[in-house]
Amino acid sequence: MSIIQAKDVKKWFGDFQALKGISMEVAEGEVLVICGPSGSGKSTFIRCINRLEQHQEGEIIVDGIELTNDLKNIEAIRSEVGMVFQSFNLFPHITVMQNVTLAPIWVRKKSRSESEEKAMELLERMGIPEQANKYPGQLSGGQQQRVAIARALAMEPKIMLFDEPTSALDPEMIKEVLDAMKVLAEDGMTMIVVTHEMGFAKEVADRVMLFDDGQMVEENTPELFFDKPKHDRTKLFLSQIL
């Protein structure tokens, strides 16, 4: 049973068509890596999955709920889909602990003590329990991104979306974030990762996709994708990036 189904999703920004009919499915527990040149619509697509962007045609069904203008459905999907952004987007005016507990307390309506316990557990899993009472501005980029992952996990999502989680980081910090993501993948989380880290894709992904010009060009297992790409576009892309 696939947890995400997308059928012929189309999206325009004014004159520009960002998505030209994307159809795909993601199974539960699967790790999907999406790569492609910038402006190819990959970010737009995963932002459509938790309705940060609104698709205009086609349908997206997440965990059996279709994404429409229905208020309840949007709320339901957002609490089941966690998202990690390229630029972390931590809330700078509150501490790391408050960042992580904010959603459980206010959205899930859990008690403070319970949420803090859970948050501490998550921060430990991310390897940064000692930073709990600092402000985001006092942390390094890698640490901030791990806090962002912990914040998303605090909602106990079924699916995690990663929007280029490592591209705003210094090279030495990329590894710590990727390691944290690997741990997640090993725990069986459903993940869609937009990234240029081909090493991560080879090692962790169950499937790799290439987006170009608003369309899905190629979809394959990592081995086939990297070793025997079907399309010329993929070959070109791989030659540029590797």
Binding site: N50, L52, N89, F91, L102, A103, A152
Partner: peptide, 10 residues
Amino acid sequence: GQYEAADAIG
């Protein structure tokens, strides 16, 4: 991004 992050955590 702050608005989006807030949206994303519901």
